[in-house]
């Protein structure tokens, strides 16, 4: 139990997706102009990662991992090179499914977060979460916790950046630094802050 808690905290703070691994930066920078849009994006990422990482773990361990087909007499079959294609398919399908479920049962949520869902099909953080899950050999429970944690880490970072950028709206920046430039500098400073969490993490 304690291990899972530690894994969650690590995924949120120490291994923060946008600030430490640079994943999902496209949406991280493009949609963080306002806090509300940033919040919507964050919630959508948590939902999709919480679903896709454990789903991909199941599929990978049952069908793609080396030796997964040993029970029908093919112990040497190694399909792990298909992982990337499968993961993209699973992410695209879950995004579509989530969109349909929201539309049917929670139309108000759909109205506020729905616009971000199609973007998440090619979101690096979501695919990256599944690929890291394979690389680090998480089991199902760990994968679920890791997915939720990384999603929460992304949401935290994007909401914070959105809040800072809103505050800076009326600041008198040099013309060349406006927009993208200052966003990078802010992200760098936040990344400095987050790297101090690495010191706190128990090895």
């Amino acid at each position: 139990m304690a291990d899972l808690g530690a894994l969650f905290l690590r995924a949120v703070f120490v291994e923060n997706m946008p600030l430490t691994y640079f994943l999902g930066l496209c949406t991280f920078l493009a949609l963080s102009r306002r806090t509300e849009t940033a919040f919507g994006l964050g919630v959508a990422v948590i939902a999709v990662m919480g679903v896709t990482v454990p789903a991909n773990q199941l599929i990978y361990s049952a069908m793609l991992a080396p030796g997964a087909w040993a029970w029908i007499g093919m112990p040497d079959l190694d399909l792990s090179y298909l992982a990337l294609l499968t993961f993209i398919g699973v992410v695209a399908a879950s995004v579509q499914l989530l969109e349909m479920v929201l539309e049917r049962y929670l139309p108000r949520v759909q109205a506020s977060f729905g616009a971000f869902l199609p973007l998440l099909t090619i979101h690096c953080a979501i695919l990256g979460g599944s690929l890291f899950m394979v690389e680090r050999r998480y089991d199902l429970a760990e994968a679920a916790v890791y997915g939720l944690g990384s999603g929460a880490g992304f949401a935290l970072a994007v909401v914070m950046l959105g809040a800072i950028r809103t505050r800076l709206a009326y600041a008198d920046l040099p013309a060349g630094l406006r927009g993208l430039g200052i966003a990078f500098v802010l992200a760098g400073m936040m990344s400095l802050g987050f790297s101090s969490f690495a010191q706190m993490a128990a090895p």
Partner: peptide
């Protein structure tokens, strides 16, 4: 990690100062 952000931010700044039509 932070230095990558700072360098890219600086690069964007430099390019946008040289070609001002790119500034936002």
């Amino acid at each position: 990690a932070p230095s990558a952000f700072f360098l890219l931010g600086g690069l964007v700044w430099a390019i946008r100062s040289l070609w001002p039509e790119q500034a936002e």
